[in-house]
């Protein structure tokens, strides 16, 4: 499937800001399940081109704005050819050792409730346990936009029983690590099955390591493994580390941040014809 994405993030400041530095992970890496085409990233119209692979194999670019501006507009757009690999994600330019992904962070650190939750997960093998975990996460944290913030921890989300994809993913990776399964937080885009469910923002899911299969993408929010509806941007140990945009602006806090993601299937007819030819 070919997906077309337009992802715009706009920061506005009350007074002009001179020193803005951004770390951008907005370039979908080439993987077994995705091939970016004509992908472009720009900040205030200026193209950002030098993406390097970081320690996790994700593409990372640095952008610096020294001329004072009141608005910062970050645009990532292009199309990505995706394929359904039954959740298996491979082909990273750099692989970090697996025990790194057993580390908990301030956002994922398990409390007694998360430990008990993790122990309640049963399955015949690692894969089975992960599927069970993915299903259980959605049972203990119901989807409710606005119920948590970006600073909410896995423990807080579990305690309150409500959250969004960030909270589902934090709980999933926290519990997987408790079970000794390397897991990481992934940020990217999701093409909703039904246009009315379109997120208009980035999505989050988890990847967990299954011996013999490798990294498997689990979307706990939707209770399934990743398919050709997903475009992967980057990963980290938690949401903060996996943020597609990390920024620092000296002497200023953005007064308004607006993000918008539009994702569509490129010419569905053509894609279908392509498939028929294979």
């Amino acid at each position: 499937m070919e997906l077309t994405v337009l992802h715009q993030t706009t920061y506005r400041y009350d007074t002009p800001v001179g020193q803005i530095a951004l770390l951008l992970r907005l370039q979908p890496p080439q993987l077994n399940c995705q091939t970016p085409r004509d992908w472009q990233v720009s900040v205030n119209g200026e193209p950002v081109s030098t993406f390097h692979a970081n320690g996790f194999g994700d593409s990372e670019a640095f952008f610096q704005q020294r001329r004072p501006v009141r608005e910062l507009s970050i645009v990532a757009s292009g199309s990505v050819e995706t394929s359904d690999r039954h959740g298996v994600v491979s082909g990273f330019r750099q692989e970090a050792p697996l025990p790194v992904f057993l580390r908990q962070t301030d956002l994922t650190r398990p409390d007694a409730a998360i430990r008990a939750f993790a122990q309640s997960v049963v399955g015949p093998d690692t894969l089975g346990r992960l599927h069970a975990l993915s299903g259980l996460v959605r049972e203990v944290i119901s989807y409710r936009p606005g119920s948590t913030s970006t600073a909410s921890t896995a423990a807080e989300a579990l305690a309150q029983g409500q959250g969004v994809c960030q909270d589902h993913t934090h709980l999933f990776v926290s519990a997987a690590r408790v079970l000794g399964i390397p897991a990481r937080y992934v940020a990217g885009y999701l093409l909703a099955d039904d246009a009315s469910q379109a997120l208009r923002e980035t999505h989050a899911w988890a990847e967990a390591w299954v011996e013999g299969l490798g990294w498997l993408g689990f979307d706990a929010t939707n209770g399934l493994c990743v398919t050709d509806h997903y475009v992967r941007l980057c990963c980290g140990l938690d949401a903060q580390e996996a943020a597609p945009v990390r920024g620092s602006a000296f002497g200023a806090t953005a007064t308004a941040v607006q993000a918008d993601v539009m994702i569509n299937e490129t010419r569905p007819d053509a894609a279908q014809q392509n498939q028929q030819q294979q």
């Binding site: 692979a53 970081n54 320690g55 996790f56 750099q94 970090a96 050792p97 697996l98 025990p99 790194v100 057993l102 580390r103």
Partner: peptide, 26 residues
């Protein structure tokens, strides 16, 4: 990580250690 593969130092002691910086890998 040859010394870890050789089993001379436990992997977790290194990779799960906060002093190990994944950003430096490779």
């Amino acid at each position: 990580g040859e010394i870890l593969r050789a089993g001379l130092i436990p992997q977790d002691l290194v990779y799960q250690n906060p002093a190990f910086r994944p950003e430096m890998i490779g």
